[in-house]
């Protein structure tokens, strides 16, 4: 059975690239363009991994991470963000995210990190 990945990102170009790459890697990809849409999906669907931006409309990435850690703690999270400030990266890891990727990102590297995170979770 294919592993399901939820991509939470408001930039259509990034969503398209990520989805394209991950589908080609053999995953089932679900996308959410904002925090509210993502929250709805998290309440009703199950995912193997969540790939999220921090700056999102309506509900921020940090709020989503808090929700996931409280309600579905076993699901690994990878943050994809433009921020490369140490404090933001440290905060994200303190919240329990599994990996942090800064934009601009290399799709091949991202693909490897997704595979590694899923392998570590299993």
């Amino acid at each position: 059975m294919k592993k399901r990945i939820l991509i939470i990102e408001d930039n259509p170009m990034v969503v398209k690239s990520l989805a394209f790459k991950l589908i080609r890697d053999g995953y089932e990809v679900v996308t959410a363009a904002d925090g509210r849409d993502a929250m709805e999906r998290l309440k009703t669907e199950r995912f193997s991994l969540i790939l999220t931006d921090l700056m999102l409309p309506f509900i921020s990435g940090s709020q989503l991470i808090e929700y996931i850690k409280k309600n579905i703690p076993g699901v690994p999270i990878i943050v994809l963000s433009t921020s490369n400030q140490d404090d933001i990266i440290t905060d994200a890891f303190n919240m329990g995210v599994d990996d942090f990727i800064t934009k601009p990102f290399s799709p091949n590297e991202l693909s490897l990190r997704v595979r590694r995170t899923l392998a570590n979770t299993n």
């Binding site: 170009m13 690239s17 934009k103 601009p104 990102f105 290399s106 799709p107």
Partner: peptide, 15 residues
Amino acid sequence: KQLLIFNENLKGAST
């Protein structure tokens, strides 16, 4: 413009 948006978000072989 579209190429610039891609270029802004991607790195490595993609660029």
